[in-house]
Design a binder for these strands. Structure first.
Lengths: 136, 136
DNA sequence: CTGCCACTTCAAGTCAGCTTGAGGTCAACC
DNA sequence: GGTTGACCTCAAGCTGACTTGAAGTGGCAG
């Protein structure tokens, strides 16, 4: 059998077995059967788990993620929706870049009082605009 | 007085009053006093809240954020640490870009089977590499 | 001076996303 | 054929980040 025992999958993916069981329980992944009691998984689940990890990084809930991909892990959303999600990601990325720039700036700017530094203030201005953007 | 009543601050920042109280309770922000019972805040708290919002977007916990900025909202970490945080953000940003690219790709790629598309597979390969990176 | 109402406190509740614990099972190794 | 150990189930517990509810307070408009 070319199936992965839950323990093997856990090791390969770095995802705890308890989490894999939980993911299966909520329908996020599926096992193909059992060997004795032990869940067996299809190798592509590894890819799925990578997608799930990415999705989580992107701030999506497991439920969101569940809606994005079919059981085989292939994306299952209409094009428009995909582009919307991508756009949202772009916005989030810009926010993170801003924060990163702010951090780097204060790391390098020798000013005693960052709050008075025009560059920092500008970054914070953008920050304020972004603040309400995500998840009202 | 040029101070902001909690209600005003809440409206200006978009952060619920209950959340502001919670933030004060955990020491993330500070009020400058009371008017009757009502908390009064310094205007710079608005900037602080923007920073907090950015920090949250970046995936930091409130505790992390608390450690990053002093009570006046100015960053309070050694340069090296700031750069480390910035580097971590860069990595996170790359992950998000990857996910975004993956989404856009599948939105535009007409292939029936994304899992077979080399470009998609390459994106997923990176995804797997990234998967374990953040928060074991 | 009365009433309103946005605030106050404090405890408890909620939600996501898991983890932990107790008690059970079973394929495999010796 | 017994022991082992990684799995199983199911319920309960946990953390983070808040929200909600009940009961109280006090500044200000009328």
């Amino acid at each position: 059998m070319k199936f992965l025992d839950i323990g093997v999958l856990s090791k390969q993916s770095g995802v705890p077995a308890s989490t894999l069981r939980y993911y299966e329980e909520i329908g996020l992944i599926q096992s193909v059967g059992r060997h004795g009691l032990r869940r067996q998984f299809d190798p592509p689940v590894v890819t799925q788990l990578a997608l799930i990890s990415l999705g989580k990084m992107a701030g999506f809930s497991l439920d969101d993620i569940k809606g994005m991909f079919a059981k085989d892990g292939s994306p299952q959303l209409p094009r428009a929706e995909l582009h919307l999600r991508a756009d949202a990601l772009d916005e989030q990325i810009r926010g993170l870049e801003r924060l990163r720039d702010a951090l780097r700036h204060v790391a390098d700017c020798p000013a005693e009082t960052h709050m008075e530094c025009p560059k920092f203030k500008r970054l914070m201005h953008f920050a304020s605009r972004l603040a309400g953007t995500r998840k009202g």
